[in-house]
Design a protein around this nucleic acid. Structure first.
Lengths: 206, 206
DNA sequence: TAGATTGTTAATCGATTAACAATC
DNA sequence: TAGATTGTTAATCGATTAACAATC
């Protein structure tokens, strides 16, 4: 096993390998086949997998089942992750209802908002609670993942509240860079930035 | 002006520089200050900007107004981009209602769905139309950007329909890699992949 | 054994950073 | 002039790819 530091970009590729394997009905799969399915190069497929162990056999390829369970374990999907959502506006409610979000071992089990009009709403069997109840509900619950779908101005405060109550992984939809202590990871999904990337591409073409 | 090829990663950073500048009330801003605001290194700030021209003055910094309008133009935000959305389910409806999505010169002006229950719905002053009306509505309209919020199975077909009708920039929320002809750009926003990145991080910590 | 394909090394490619001459 | 800061070069760092010995 090569124990070099794993580049961050490898992880999302693992997710894509995993999806490709799920679709494969064969018992063995080669880096060549995974390459066809994912459009990453065969070299890259082998290199990426080799960061985590020796899963294949020269001359044969990878056993589909072995690869499937190995990646599942590497990605930490061999368990259920409870998720808390803060901000039950349009986007937050959509995520609560979004089936694809629940799959793969993630489950939103609490939702919070500060607006009286949102509190008490029941979406997809989750009742929106008052943000002031957050500490009581999640502290010590073992919940580690939060989704932030509040307006920009509120995001940093919410992040701090979450972290103070045991959260250390955040999916942030507010278009601000969060200031975080070491040990806490946040990934930003910033729709305006993506649209602007498209606009840049178009602006040069037209 | 250094005319080297602009790395793709520079573009989202430009968006962040732009936001930082919007918040700045000063007439001049240095790479050092932009670095503080964005957490990219001063070198990187200067390098990134230099891909597009000489916007600053040695010893002084960058004129805020010059930088603001320059980046706006580079990103193609000096005009309005009409956007078409396909898939008026939970996520699609949320994006239609989402204020942050409309800002910065993007405007969703048409929405389509194939389900009778969605057709006719009015969300944020956009009426959802039957997908079969799409060609008649958008062909020749000059609309270049589409947002895809349909289920995975439908995404590829929708993409082809859109491209056949003049779209060449796609923001795709369906968790599939789209097969696209040259000249068409798609950016994928894949919530499961992001959650899995968080799970990977947590799995190694706990 | 012959053919196939891994895991890994070395070479290449690309992006970031440090350093500094140019210049305001 | 002295101090500040850009734009750019060269050095560094990191990721991808090509090639191939090992081995099934």
């Amino acid at each position: 096993m090569s124990r070099r530091k794993v580049p961050q970009v490898v992880i999302p590729r693992l997710s894509l390998y995993y999806r490709a394997i799920l679709e494969s009905r064969k018992e063995l799969v080669s880096s060549e086949e995974l390459s066809k399915l994912t459009r990453f190069s065969p070299s890259q497929v082998r290199r990426d997998l080799a960061y985590f162990g020796q899963f294949g056999r020269p001359g044969m390829g990878y056993k589909t089942e072995v690869l499937k369970s190995s990646i599942l374990k590497i990605l930490g999907l061999d368990r259920e992750w409870k998720v808390v959502l803060v901000g039950a506006g349009n986007l937050g409610s959509a995520l609560l209802s979004y089936k694809g979000f629940l799959s793969q071992g993630f489950r939103i089990c609490h939702a919070f908002d500060s607006r009286p009009v949102k509190i008490g709403k029941r979406i997809n069997s989750v009742t929106v609670k008052d943000i002031r109840e957050l500490p009581g509900v999640i502290k010590g619950s073992g919940i580690k993942i939060a989704v932030i779908t509040v307006p920009s101005e509120a995001a940093q405060g919410v992040a701090q509240l979450l972290i103070a109550n045991g959260i250390n992984a955040i999916l942030n939809f507010a278009p601000v860079r969060l200031n975080l202590p070491r040990g806490v990871t946040a990934l930003n999904i910033d729709l305006s930035i993506e649209l602007e990337r498209l606009a840049y591409f178009l602006a040069r073409t037209y």
